[in-house]
């Protein structure tokens, strides 16, 4: 039989899509290379006799998914007649998606000079101020609630 089976064609399509899926998977997982040490320490900057190396923490997340399927069917024409002709068809469908996000935040700066090497922390004043205000609000609220006489205290 010289005619190629439509099922094999669909299977081939599916295999081809799976190859693409492997390619996508490989590319997406490249995002997880932020686990490397070079993602955390920046390029050194030299100014005079001092060299500064920035340090940051990196948080990255990726996710992706894929789905697909194929099928085939036969449609008969002229059923019950002698010249019955059957049409065979097949189809394939698939789709996928991927997403990710990464955050980076400076943590410290390394300063190397002829006197020695030291690490200077980086303070994120905005984050600290927001945390302090939130904490103060919670504490004031809790203390006010404690000092307030209970509704059922007189019963």
């Amino acid at each position: 039989m010289s005619e190629k089976s439509p099922n094999i064609t669909a299977a081939e399509q599916y295999a081809h899509t799976l190859d693409k899926y492997d390619l996508i998977q490989g590319n997406v997982y490249k995002l997880l290379e932020v686990a490397h040490v070079n993602a955390v320490y920046g390029e050194p900057v030299t100014q005079g006799d001092q060299t500064i190396i920035p340090c940051a923490e990196v948080l990255a997340g990726v996710g992706f998914g894929f789905g697909g399927g194929f099928g085939s069917g036969t449609q008969s024409e002229g059923e019950g007649e002698a010249d019955t002709e059957s049409n065979t068809g097949s189809g394939f469908g698939g789709g996928g998606g991927a997403g990710g996000r990464s955050f980076s935040r400076p943590v410290a700066v390394v300063i190397a000079s002829p006197e020695g090497v030291r690490v200077e922390p980086v303070f994120d004043i905005t984050k600290i101020a927001l945390a302090a205000l939130t904490a103060a609000g919670f504490m004031v609220g809790m203390i006010a609630r404690m000092r307030r006489p209970s509704k059922f205290g007189e019963e």
Binding site: V37, E57, G61, G63, F64
Partner: peptide, 24 residues
């Protein structure tokens, strides 16, 4: 100066993807 870092890698079971937290 040799930089040292620590990376926490979480991969979701049964799902494709993950989270990496890398810090000096």
């Amino acid at each position: 100066i040799v930089p040292l870092s620590k990376a926490y890698i979480l991969q979701f079971p049964g799902l494709h993807g993950g989270i990496v937290w890398n810090r000096p």
